[in-house]
Design a protein around this nucleic acid. Structure first.
Length: 343
DNA sequence: AAGTTCAGCAACCGCATGATC
DNA sequence: GGATCATGCGGTTGCTGAACT
């Protein structure tokens, strides 16, 4: 039934797959499936490959419904947004892009998308030079909630320094209370909680935007697990709200609430931005109207050196949105973005 | 036309995690 | 509870073809 193969380690082939090998693997899996065991599969299929190699070839290239070729703008945006929120967790990101593999997305990010954002970033910085000379008043309180009042108090007491927390996970291992805001704007300490947070949110500190994802909401359930595990591993909380729209698509909403224990303030890679820079950003926002959002100044005025790639891209991510002028709905969401702090 | 450099991408490697015994 | 094995994941490598000199 199966071709007998002497399966010695030294006999295992490496390198690019030939069409013949592809054919054998495809045919075998088509007939028998993977059998739940990749290790023995190559032997059964008559391939001089290791199980890992077969698995990779199948998952990244041969399996049905794999999408190759250009990434769409929507896909770009999803990748950027998720990268900004969760970092280089390619498998999680790939789960939001049907037909795309984690390897594909990773390669695309490293070779194209990052450069694309860098280019946009440079372009925006040029504009910044012009607007940075302007001066306006700080924003009024925008919410009646206690949380926003607290954040406003903090701003008022901060001696002209606004303190910002990057809206991506903080991977230091310091113990730090983290909080989840549920659907009712209730903030709770997830680390002391014995059950997962009730809703699925990606917390985006500086934006409040939405993405339409042409995928079933169930895809996000795995993400929810990740979300909770991250909370418990002292990473900065992020939240994704998943809801169904009328056309059955899944809507991810990113809310703007990240919490920190004030005592650990200095340890959390917070970005300190002078009030005048904030005002400058708001000025810029007025001038450009709907095209510019509150987080702009973070991109334009990231005064704290950011050496970590994630942080760098975090900022670039916003740039891409700012320059994305083809979708007014998407940009308008940014206007809702405000920073919130809980103490 | 030939040599060199660069970009894109498939594949590999090592580590972490989960399952099973 | 520990050992072993299988799988999944992310970082890295190296091959290939295109672009450049």
């Amino acid at each position: 039934m199966f071709e007998e193969v002497t399966y010695l380690e030294a006999n295992v082939k490496k390198g690019p797959w030939s069409p013949e090998e592809d054919g054998k693997l495809k045919e075998f899996i088509g007939k028998y499936g993977t059998g739940g065991n990749w290790i023995t599969l190559p032997q059964k299929a008559g391939l001089r490959r290791c199980g890992k190699s077969c698995r990779l070839r199948w998952l990244n290239y041969l399996r049905p419904n794999i999408k190759h070729g250009e990434f769409s703008d929507d896909e770009d945006m999803i990748i950027c947004n998720l990268y900004a929120s969760i970092g280089s967790r390619w498998s999680v990101i790939a789960a939001q892009l049907p037909g795309r593999t984690d390897n594909d997305i990773k390669n695309y990010w490293n070779t194209k998308l990052k450069k694309k954002l860098l280019t946009m970033h440079s372009s925006l910085q040029e504009k910044q030079t012009f607007f940075s000379s302007m001066h306006i008043q700080p924003p009024p309180p925008s919410s009646s909630s206690n949380d926003h009042l607290k954040s406003q108090q903090y701003f008022n007491n901060s001696s002209s320094i606004y303190n910002f927390t990057p809206n991506f996970m903080n991977i230091d291992n310091t113990s730090n209370p983290l909080f989840v805001q549920d659907d009712h704007n209730h903030v709770s300490d997830v680390q002391s909680s014995s059950s997962p947070p009730p809703s699925l949110h990606v917390n985006n500190l500086m934006s409040n935007n939405s993405l339409d994802v042409n995928d079933n909401c169930l895809n996000y359930l795995g993400f929810q697990d990740d979300h909770y595990s991250m909370c418990n591993s002292h990473m900065l909380m992020f939240e994704v709200t998943c809801s169904s729209s009328q056309d059955g698509n899944c809507m991810i909403s990113q809310n703007s609430h990240v919490s920190y224990n004030k005592d650990d303030h200095e340890q959390k890679q917070k970005i300190q931005i002078k009030q005048e820079d904030y005002q400058t950003a708001l000025d810029h926002e007025q001038v450009l109207g709907d095209q510019v959002q509150n987080q702009n100044f973070l991109i334009k005025n990231h005064v704290t050196p950011l050496h970590n790639d994630l942080e760098e891209v975090k900022q670039l991510n916003y740039t891409s949105y700012l320059l994305h002028d083809g979708d007014e709905n998407k940009t308008s969401h940014f206007q809702k973005g405000m920073c919130s702090y809980y103490y």
